[in-house]
Amino acid sequence: MNSKPQAWPRYTVARDGTSIAYEDRGQGTPIIFTNGYATSHYYWEGVRAQLDPEYRTLIWDLKGHGYSAPARNLDECSIPACADDLIRVLDAAGVEKAVLAGFSLGCQIILETWRQHPDRILAFIPVLGTYGRPFDNLLHPQFGKSAYRAFKAIGPKISRSIMPAVRLNMRLPTTHTVTRMTGMVGPDVDLAKMKPFYDHFQVLDGPSWIAMGVHAQDHSAEDLLESIDVPTLIVSGGRDVFTPHRLSVHMHKSIKGSELFLLPSATHAGLLEHTEAISARIGEFLHRNDLHVS
């Protein structure tokens, strides 16, 4: 397995003792970016670069992902535990209130944070993600259910033995072709853009990854949606086979006063496909709502 790249300069500690990596740069209203399942900071970098001149931006890695250590306790890969990790990053950075942006699984995490610490949240920006039970809609309902059963059956011990095969597969030149054929990414996303995602599997911790997927399917923040009363911008992709647009519509209708931004041609890789459009829409949303720390 390849060694991890040079670590980010800052760390905090989860309640199970796992080291959580984060980066903190810039000044202004804080925005914290939460990554998706099996991803790291590279998905957000384009958007973050557009916001850096005006905002303080923080980005962090989930347990077992990127620069963060593998989970010491796999029960702490639950969505509520990840929400606690997010708050610990804010605490470590000395941030009282922030705009919470989440991609994919990160949407569940930021919404769950509303249950624990609504007083710490200035606004929500869920991007290409749902409020719960993500396997229900993965590619096709039957495929998602089968994938969930497989994840649950694998468990941490088996995951260690299958990770070499997973890592090898992610290095194959045909992987990107298959990813595009299934509609997971659009035709405009070339291999160079997706390579950081494939490379990330070389450092992804198998047990943490599997445990987080199982916990994600057991979680829903749907019960929280109607109680959310901070500015919310929901970004949806018309060709997202992971999070169908109808789920974003439901979230939009449930969160009073929320805004829905649909990119008709965006797949689940919309942050890479439509970086400028998403960045511009987020910037406009933040300016219009005059978001600031009191």
Rank of each mutant, 00 (worst) to 15 (best):
G64C: 07
P70G: 06
E45W: 07
S248T: 05
F124P: 00
R56E: 06
H219Y: 09
K4G: 14
G106N: 02
A92C: 07
C82K: 14
S236G: 10
I158T: 11
V203F: 11
F124L: 02
T34V: 06
N169P: 05
L291N: 10
W44C: 00
D188C: 10
D85G: 05
R56D: 07
D61C: 15
T57D: 05
V127Q: 13
D84C: 09
F285W: 10
L62T: 15
L262T: 12
D85K: 07
H245W: 15
H117G: 14
A93K: 01
R25S: 15
S220H: 12
H140Y: 13
I79P: 05
G144F: 04
R171G: 10
T177D: 02
R72M: 06
A38H: 10
S40W: 12
G213I: 01
I79F: 11
D75M: 11
V99N: 01
F285G: 12
D229G: 12
P231G: 01
A165H: 14
D229I: 11
C107A: 05
R180T: 00
L191R: 14
A277L: 07
F143R: 09
E276M: 12
Y67G: 08
D240N: 03
I20P: 00
L58S: 12
R15H: 09
K256Q: 14
I125M: 03
N289R: 12
D75F: 09
M194P: 01
M251G: 05
S248P: 03
D16K: 03
Q6C: 15
Y198C: 03
R160G: 09
H200P: 01
F143D: 05
K193S: 10
S265F: 06
R180C: 02
L191I: 11
I255D: 02
G17P: 11
L58Y: 02
I31C: 04
Y22Q: 00
S161A: 12
Y55V: 00
E222D: 13
P118N: 03
A211W: 04
Q217M: 12
E96F: 14
K193F: 06
L138V: 08
G17R: 09
A150N: 15
D75G: 11
L172V: 04
H287E: 13
V230R: 10
S279W: 01
L86V: 03
G144Q: 01
D136A: 15
D188H: 15
K97T: 08
R120M: 05
G94T: 13
I125T: 04
E222C: 13
P244D: 06
I109D: 06
G129M: 03
T29G: 05
K193R: 10
D188A: 10
V166M: 08
A98D: 00
L86A: 02
T29F: 04
K253N: 09
T182S: 08
D205L: 11
Q108C: 09
D290S: 11
L139R: 01
A101F: 04
S279D: 13
I158L: 12
K253R: 11
K152N: 11
A38G: 06
P70E: 05
A7Q: 07
F261T: 03
Q116M: 08
T182Y: 05
